[in-house]
């Protein structure tokens, strides 16, 4: 359970204050598939970064499974990012000199007790995203969609509860975008919470929950018609 209570984030550029997030209160249950949409600069990335413990709220509280993140040290947050969350980025963010296997293995390096043995776990994750035959390829030798799959495999390797993806399809064509979305949907049906930020209407439409931000505020939450708890749930409080 991810629980945000009156979360604010303010950036000050010299004299002008930018209120990137204002009074965000959200409850995100396990197994949720949530899309966050909104205009550019509306605070989507800022929200996702706070959810993923990359950033701390200015004020307000963020609890993960009942634990208050403000009490955690930087190392504690790093451990959370490593174990609880998997990140997927718009620009893939793969290490150019590492092949697919080596890229996928990175979260393992920082894990005090990784789930399983590195070789097998990475291979298994690459199989899962349909890249079993590209394990020794460098990112430069892969298409955009394949690179994003490697990134998803990397996000999965430590078996996190939550996948956070900031415009995972932003750099891909429509068909490839759909493939990536299908993979994410499959992960959600496997039990993971998946939270994606997207610009694209037709991507958002396919997600059961859609949160709309505007000027740092949550102005709308679309819920599925047949909401039942096994499909997770989101509440704007």
């Amino acid at each position: 359970m991810l629980y945000l209570n009156q979360v604010e984030k303010v950036y000050s550029n010299g004299s002008n204050r930018i209120e990137a997030l204002q009074e965000i209160s959200l409850k995100i249950s396990p197994h949720t598939f949530l899309a966050i949409q909104g205009k550019s600069g509306s605070g989507k990335t800022t929200l996702l970064n706070i959810l993923g413990c990359l950033d701390r709220p200015e004020s307000g509280a963020y609890q993960i499974d009942g634990e208050d993140t403000s009490l955690k040290s930087d190392n504690g947050l790093a451990a959370l990012r490593n174990k609880k969350f998997g990140f997927v980025f718009q620009s893939f963010n793969l290490m150019p000199r590492f092949n697919a296997l080596e890229n996928v293995i990175i979260p393992f390096i920082y894990s005090p007790n990784p789930p399983g043995r590195p070789k097998e776990a990475t291979q298994q994750m690459l199989n899962k995203v349909g890249l079993s035959d590209r394990t020794k390829h460098l990112p430069g030798e892969l298409s955009g969609g394949q690179q994003q799959r490697v990134a998803i495999a990397r996000a999965l390797v430590n078996n996190p509860d939550v996948i956070l993806a900031d415009e995972p399809t932003g750099a891909l064509d429509n068909q490839t975008s759909q493939e990536i979305l299908d993979i994410l949907a499959e992960l959600n049906s496997d039990g993971k919470t998946v939270i994606i930020v997207t610009h694209e209407k037709d991507i958002a439409q396919q997600c059961p929950y859609v949160l709309t931000l505007s000027d740092g505020r949550a102005i709308d939450l679309k819920k599925p018609g047949n909401e039942n708890l096994s499909n997770g749930g989101v509440n704007v409080l």
């Binding site: 990359l54 790093a78 963010n93 290490m95 979260p107």
Partner: peptide, 16 residues
Amino acid sequence: IREIGLRKALGARNKD
């Protein structure tokens, strides 16, 4: 810098 940011996102602590 991006690589370092990425490593941190993937769970690297400051001392890593």
